[in-house]
Amino acid sequence: MPEDLNAKDISLTFAKGLEVLAAFDATDREMTIPALARKTNLNRTVTRRLVLTLEHLNYLECRNRVYRLTPRILRLAGGFLQGRDIGKHVTPILTTCSEALKESVSFAMIDGLEAVYVAHSPGDPTMITIGFTVGSRLPLNATAIGRTLVAFSAPGKREYLLTHAPREAHTNATKTEIEDLRADLQTTAFQGFAFVSDEFEQGVSSLAVPVLQNDGELVGALGIVGPNPRFADEEQQKKRLALLRECASSIAMIV
């Protein structure tokens, strides 16, 4: 909450409605009202009223008392994507970069305590390990794109993200201790990129660079992901970094 905004200025009902919408994800694509109440920690009566309102507005649809999102939910993201020229300018840049790298390339920003893909070029579909697309969310601690976003954030925000973002162990190799992550973030900031192996998915590596404005302010991060052997060649790694940085510079002039 902004410092100059009082709690009395907040519409709690509206906030609760957004909580209901945010409850739907890849794991819980369809839910009953009791399930939504449990997930959001809202009173069941309140949840029912919110769900019926969202159904009336066509953001939710119901079948056999089970609710799911409708395509109208995309209207909420449309203004952001169009305002940042994501589809018009950013996606073509990613496509060109993806073709040159022969890799899937993603552009992510920080949303709360996670990274969220706002643009994505799938590249070679045979090399995809997890089905990422626009809207996919990633942890900040276990991915190169997440660590890049944290490492290049303003100092105060960087420390906040480091200490408050989830540090779940996705594999046996995942770094979860704050001091280990802090050291890794310092290395990332110094070398200008992040490289992470086996921490989010076993046998998979990720490489990411920041997208920075001329004044150094962080816009987002660009990243690629693939099987470990594809990142073993040092010369190829340098070429990937050069292409990613070139792509990042182009995007920084747009968003």
Results as ranks from 00 to 15, higher is better:
residue 1 M to H: 12
residue 9 D to R: 07
residue 11 S to N: 04
residue 11 S to R: 10
residue 12 L to P: 04
residue 12 L to T: 10
residue 18 L to M: 14
residue 25 D to Q: 10
residue 25 D to I: 01
residue 27 T to V: 15
residue 29 R to D: 09
residue 34 P to L: 12
residue 37 A to Y: 04
residue 38 R to A: 09
residue 46 V to R: 14
residue 48 R to N: 03
residue 48 R to C: 13
residue 48 R to I: 11
residue 49 R to C: 03
residue 50 L to G: 03
residue 54 L to M: 03
residue 56 H to A: 08
residue 56 H to W: 07
residue 57 L to C: 14
residue 59 Y to H: 07
residue 63 R to G: 03
residue 65 R to N: 11
residue 65 R to K: 05
residue 67 Y to G: 01
residue 70 T to P: 15
residue 70 T to W: 06
residue 72 R to S: 07
residue 74 L to M: 13
residue 82 Q to F: 10
residue 83 G to C: 10
residue 84 R to N: 09
residue 85 D to H: 08
residue 85 D to I: 03
residue 86 I to P: 01
residue 89 H to Q: 06
residue 90 V to S: 03
residue 91 T to A: 02
residue 100 A to Q: 10
residue 104 S to E: 00
residue 109 M to E: 11
residue 110 I to N: 07
residue 111 D to P: 05
residue 113 L to N: 09
residue 113 L to Y: 07
residue 113 L to A: 11
residue 114 E to P: 14
residue 123 G to Y: 00
residue 125 P to V: 02
residue 127 M to R: 06
residue 130 I to Q: 06
residue 130 I to F: 11
residue 131 G to L: 14
residue 135 G to A: 06
residue 140 L to S: 07
residue 142 A to I: 10
residue 144 A to V: 00
residue 144 A to N: 04
residue 148 T to D: 05
residue 148 T to C: 11
residue 152 F to K: 01
residue 154 A to Y: 08
residue 157 K to A: 08
residue 160 Y to E: 07
residue 160 Y to G: 05
residue 161 L to E: 14
residue 163 T to P: 06
residue 163 T to Y: 05
residue 163 T to G: 10
residue 166 P to Q: 08
residue 168 E to C: 12
residue 171 T to K: 02
residue 172 N to D: 15
residue 176 T to A: 02
residue 177 E to M: 13
residue 179 E to W: 12
residue 179 E to S: 12
residue 179 E to G: 02
residue 181 L to V: 09
residue 184 D to T: 06
residue 185 L to C: 14
residue 187 T to I: 15
residue 187 T to L: 07
residue 188 T to V: 05
residue 190 F to H: 14
residue 192 G to K: 01
residue 193 F to K: 04
residue 196 V to N: 03
residue 199 E to W: 14
residue 203 G to K: 08
residue 209 V to A: 02
residue 213 Q to C: 08
residue 217 E to D: 12
residue 217 E to V: 11
residue 221 A to E: 00
residue 222 L to I: 04
residue 227 P to N: 13
residue 232 A to M: 11
residue 235 E to Y: 10
residue 235 E to Q: 12
residue 235 E to R: 06
residue 238 K to S: 09
residue 240 R to G: 01
residue 249 S to C: 08
residue 251 I to R: 05
residue 251 I to M: 02
residue 252 A to C: 05
residue 253 M to N: 10
residue 255 V to A: 13
